Amino acid sequence: MMAYMNPGPHYSVNALALSGPSVDLMHQAVPYPSAPRKQRRERTTFTRSQLEELEALFAKTQYPDVYAREEVALKINLPESRVQVWFKNRRAKCRQQRQQQKQQQQPPGGQAKARPAKRKAGTSPRPSTDVCPDPLGISDSYSPPLPGPSGSPTTAVATVSIWSPASESPLPEAQRAGLVASGPSLTSAPYAMTYAPASAFCSSPSAYGSPSSYFSGLDPYLSPMVPQLGGPALSPLSGPSVGPSLAQSPTSLSGQSYGAYSPVDSLEFKDPTGTWKFTYNPMDPLDYKDQSAWKFQIL
């Protein structure tokens, strides 16, 4: 009977010793046993002879290597770790002494450095960015050149030099007046198309007034536009458009034309069986010896 009264063996659950049927240790109110408190290391007290050895090595170098620390530790009968900690504390003490010396050398008012006064946003004049500046400075420094007289040679050079070769001289006033084509001369031969040399188009003023001019072949195509416009036809070669000034309004060009419109200028042929003959000019830059190549039959 006494065997049943004795408590059973101890069981360990999660490293906790349980005594038989008792489960009081598993209750929430019972805390787990805490780790033992780490003991504080005792402070090391250095003797005068030990301090002399350490100070002598510190005077040589503030960062001794492990071999120098072990050698000193053997002399003063201390572990190497204590020597390492002593050098660490000695360097910190040396830095603190240097900072105190710097503070003593500075004057009393030198510690508080005078800061520059901050400028207020409204006091300083700042350039306004509302208006974009002129990058080319046209509004201040540029002045347009004065327009020359209508009959000045410089204007003629600016007008005619675009179309004339570089080897030719500017046309005088008398020749510029001949550039304007007359109405009857352009409409006299509506079906004849003559190819003149390129030099005649640039230099010869008579080429624009003769039936064999460069633009005589364009007349049949330009004249039928007159009834559609409801007024006189516009002429690209009329009046002052080739003269001194090219800047004319469309209203000033509306009254200039080749001449009176005639039914002869239409595109319809009077004789459907007729042929169109292209007159060959020996001055043509295209060297075609066979003139029969310039004739064709309209079917």
Rank of each mutant, 00 (worst) to 15 (best):
R98S: 06
G8K: 02
G239W: 12
Q256V: 10
S203C: 11
M193P: 00
V264N: 02
P133W: 09
P147G: 06
Q256W: 15
A207H: 04
S212A: 03
T44Y: 14
P211H: 03
P220K: 13
R91V: 13
T123C: 07
A158S: 02
T154Y: 13
G239F: 15
G209W: 15
K75L: 07
S254R: 08
W163G: 01
H10R: 08
T273A: 02
F296N: 00
G137T: 09
G274L: 07
P205L: 14
S143T: 03
Q99C: 04
V85W: 15
V23Q: 01
S49W: 10
P144K: 09
R43M: 14
D24R: 13
Q97M: 05
F46V: 09
A181W: 15
G110F: 01
D290W: 13
Y32Q: 03
V160R: 05
P116S: 08
A207E: 01
S81F: 13
Q99D: 06
R115E: 02
G20L: 13
F269K: 01
V66E: 11
V157S: 06
S292F: 13
Q248H: 07
Y221W: 06
E55H: 06
A68L: 05
T251M: 10
V264K: 10
G230N: 04
F296M: 00
P145V: 07
G178Y: 12
V131K: 06
D65I: 12
G259E: 05
W86T: 15
S254P: 02
N6I: 12
T279Y: 11
A158P: 01
D287I: 14
Y142P: 11
A59Q: 02
L146I: 05
C132Q: 08
C132F: 04
W163Q: 01
S169E: 08
V264Q: 01
N14I: 12
S34I: 09
K75Q: 11
S182A: 09
A166Y: 09
R43H: 14
P116E: 01
R95K: 04
G178Q: 05
V83I: 06
Y32G: 07
M5C: 00
A15W: 15
E52F: 06
R41Q: 13
G255A: 09
A156I: 13
W294L: 00
I138Q: 07
T45K: 01
P107E: 05
P205C: 14
D65A: 11
A192G: 01
D134C: 12
L74S: 10
P125N: 05
Y142M: 10
Y214L: 09
A260R: 10
C132W: 06
P79N: 06
G148W: 10
A207C: 14
S141Y: 07
D219A: 11
S206D: 04
S203T: 09
T154S: 07
V72K: 15
S199T: 04
V23T: 02
T44M: 15
G148I: 13
F278P: 00
T44K: 14
C202S: 03
S169V: 10
L237D: 01
A200T: 04
A198F: 14
Q96M: 03
T279C: 05
D130E: 02
Q228R: 14
L74V: 10
D265T: 15
W294V: 03
M193E: 00
R82E: 14
V13H: 02
L222R: 08
P149F: 02
P272E: 10
V13K: 01
T154P: 07
L25M: 01
P205A: 10
S169M: 10
G109S: 04
G239T: 06
G8M: 10
P244M: 10
A174K: 12
W163K: 02
K270T: 14
L218D: 00
A73N: 13
G183K: 10
S164R: 08
S167F: 12
M225E: 01
F58C: 13
T47G: 08
Q103L: 06
A17G: 00
M26T: 08
L179C: 04
S252C: 12
L253W: 05
H10G: 01
A68V: 04
A3I: 15
A17V: 14
Y261P: 05
A192V: 14
T155L: 11
L171K: 06
P285C: 05
Q228L: 15
F201Q: 00
F269G: 00
P197R: 11
S128D: 07
L186K: 07
S254V: 10
A166M: 03
E53W: 10
Q100I: 08
Q62Y: 06
P172E: 01
Q104T: 09
F87G: 13
S124F: 07
S262T: 11
K295C: 12
S241I: 12
D24V: 13
A117R: 11
E173C: 13
Y195A: 01
D287M: 15
W276Y: 05
N77V: 13
S164P: 01
N14Y: 14
D287F: 13
L218H: 01
D284M: 13
S223N: 02
M26Y: 12
S216Q: 07
L57S: 13
T279D: 00
S262I: 13
K277A: 00
W163P: 00
D140Q: 08
K277S: 01
S213Q: 05
I76P: 10
P263F: 12
R40N: 12
D219H: 13
Q50V: 12
L246E: 02
P190V: 14
L171G: 10
A117K: 09
S257M: 11
Q39G: 07
P224D: 02
L16C: 00
A156K: 03
P170R: 04
S188N: 05
I298E: 00
A156H: 03
